[in-house]
């Protein structure tokens, strides 16, 4: 037990170090490389006019922040959803929440092209509407875990088709939403990030505060109820939180997959199903994961860029398969 605690501490230290290191690297490298001394000058306020300053503030910083928010948001949303639905296959992707948010964002781009607040709000509405729909479906049809995933896959397919239909109707949308469909952080600005960052930070804070209740929910309805948890209230509360996270992330990063599914599994390997550790661990690990993927996408074929969504799926899928197979038939813990 003591040893385990020591391992946990080491994990947090390593991940925190990676977070800081990758954030700094993310500021330094890209199509133009910036030296550490230049970065220091800008941070210390000695340089406020050069091109370096402009690149840092209008390109690199928003990008690093967007990576952090995306990873932390999706990682946390994954833990919350998997716990609430008691299903290790759940993530905002697999149950169609991302597609729901994506559909509404695309609708918003079509209807109010200039309105950033509308985009965030629509993403949240889309994510929540899809979550609520899936939850109702699972609740009224049959309380089975497979049902939820199947319903999610179905709805996801439907919404992707609807998004494609919109692209056919409006040609401009194809070009405007190419990066959105793949999941990309290029072109993110501080202004883009304002509303989503407030939403994401609030939702993560709430999830952390109520992490004990999340633990109780994983025991199943009957047991959770007998322990004095208002099961229905908390379920809706946590669905709201995960919707907010998925929705706000999608609003600026597009349809990024895999983070919400994989990160909780990696962290559960170290921290078991204890949300008090699992939530912060997934938040940090998710952030590191997306930071690394975005950085690789920027420097690998510089000055050309590979969208972060592609890097995440290309590296995430084999890695997840490896995790599944390495555990040699042992079930993936829910």
């Amino acid at each position: 037990m003591e040893r385990r605690k020591a391992y946990n501490r080491i994990y947090f230290c390593v991940i925190a170090f990676l977070l800081v290191a990758l954030s700094v690297l993310g500021l330094l490298f890209g199509s133009v490389n910036i030296s550490l001394s230049k970065l220091a000058e800008v941070i210390l306020g000695r340089d406020t006019t050069s091109a370096t300053y402009a690149i840092l503030y209008s390109v690199r910083l928003p990008r690093v922040l967007a990576s952090l928010l995306t990873g932390a948001g999706l990682g946390t949303a994954g833990v919350v959803l998997q716990s609430v639905l008691n299903n290790s296959l759940a993530s905002s992707n697999t149950i169609g929440v991302n597609s729901g948010a994506g559909f509404f964002v695309m609708l918003s781009i079509l209807l109010f092209p200039q309105n950033l607040a509308a985009k965030s709000l629509m993403a949240f509405i889309g994510a929540f509407a899809t979550s609520a729909f899936i939850l109702c479906l699972a609740y009224f049809a049959e309380r089975s875990r497979v049902t939820i995933i199947l319903a999610g896959v179905t709805i996801s397919g439907f919404l992707v088709a609807a998004m494609n239909a919109m692209k056919i109707i409006d040609d401009d949308l194809v070009v405007n939403t190419l990066h959105f469909s793949i999941g990309s952080l290029s072109g993110v600005t501080m202004k883009n990030l304002l509303y989503p960052s407030i939403g994401i930070v609030t939702a993560i804070t709430l999830a952390l505060i109520f992490s004990k209740a999340l633990n109780i929910l994983t025991l199943g309805d009957g047991t959770a109820h007998s322990l004095g948890l208002n099961v229905n209230l908390y379920r809706i509360f946590f669905i709201l939180i995960s919707s907010a996270l998925a929705g706000f992330v999608v609003s600026f990063s597009g349809l990024i997959g895999f983070v919400g599914l994989i990160i909780p599994h990696i962290c559960r390997y170290f921290f078991r199903q204890d949300a008090r550790l699992l939530l912060p661990a997934s938040m940090l690990t998710g952030a590191v994961f997306v930071l690394a993927a975005d950085l690789i996408g920027r420097v690998l074929f510089a000055p050309y860029e590979i969208p972060v969504g592609i890097i995440l799926s290309l590296s995430g899928a084999p890695f997840f398969l490896y995790l599944l197979l390495r555990r040699g038939g042992k079930r993936v813990n829910a």
Partner: peptide, 16 residues
């Protein structure tokens, strides 16, 4: 006041 041991349980979570 009242505790309940259920006959049916969802999967046991991965905790000690």
């Amino acid at each position: 006041r009242l505790s309940f041991m259920s006959q049916f349980r969802e999967n046991t979570p991965n905790i000690t």
